[in-house]
């Protein structure tokens, strides 16, 4: 594990985080636009997309869950860019708490889909996978990005 981490350079890590946060951003934004524009959501794997997207669990405090996703991935991306720009440790150290939050939220959403709705939506699963990857990258950032 340590040898693997030692092969990851800060630049590679930053690129990975940016790429995955962009992927998550696209996924969440697509769902959010679908939510406000209406119309059936084409589910390329499984059939639960509409079941999940129109369930009462798709809003938290009256705001679509997808919008939280958009904001979350955007925040991760912007935070990484701020680090890249300013090289301030504050931004790098923000990554782990943020991605942990995202990971925990994803766990909760998987739970909701499995036990409360009884249907899965492929875009939500993709988002959960991405936020898990980001969480791992967040942990790695603690080792790779060090105070200069």
């Amino acid at each position: 594990m340590n040898t693997l981490i030692s092969k990851i350079t800060p630049t590679l890590l930053i690129i990975l985080i940016l790429v995955f946060s962009l992927m998550g951003f696209s996924d969440a934004l697509f769902l959010f636009i679908k939510k406000i524009a209406g119309g059936p959501i084409p589910c390329f794997i499984g059939t639960g997309c509409d079941t999940v997207a129109s369930s009462p669990y798709s809003n938290i405090f009256g705001i679509p869950v997808a919008l939280y996703g958009v904001a979350f991935y955007l925040l991760i991306g912007v935070c990484t860019l701020f680090y890249l720009d300013t090289k301030k440790m504050f931004f790098a150290r923000l990554l782990l708490p943020l991605t942990t939050l995202g990971f925990l939220m994803s766990l909760y959403f998987i739970y909701v889909q499995k036990f409360l709705i009884g249907a899965f939506c492929v875009y939500c699963i993709i988002s959960a996978i991405i936020s898990t990857i980001l969480f791992v990258l967040g942990i790695v950032s603690r080792y790779v990005i060090r105070t200069p």
Binding site: L22, F25, S26, L29, K34, A37, L74, G77, V78, L81
Partner: peptide
């Protein structure tokens, strides 16, 4: 850095919008 970030986000937003509101893929 910031200009390309804004550009990429803009492209994704436009792309997501047209995919989500356009005709379904098939």
């Amino acid at each position: 850095i910031w200009a390309s970030a804004v550009l990429i986000i803009g492209i994704i937003a436009v792309g997501a919008w047209s995919i989500a509101t356009g005709p379904t893929t098939t």
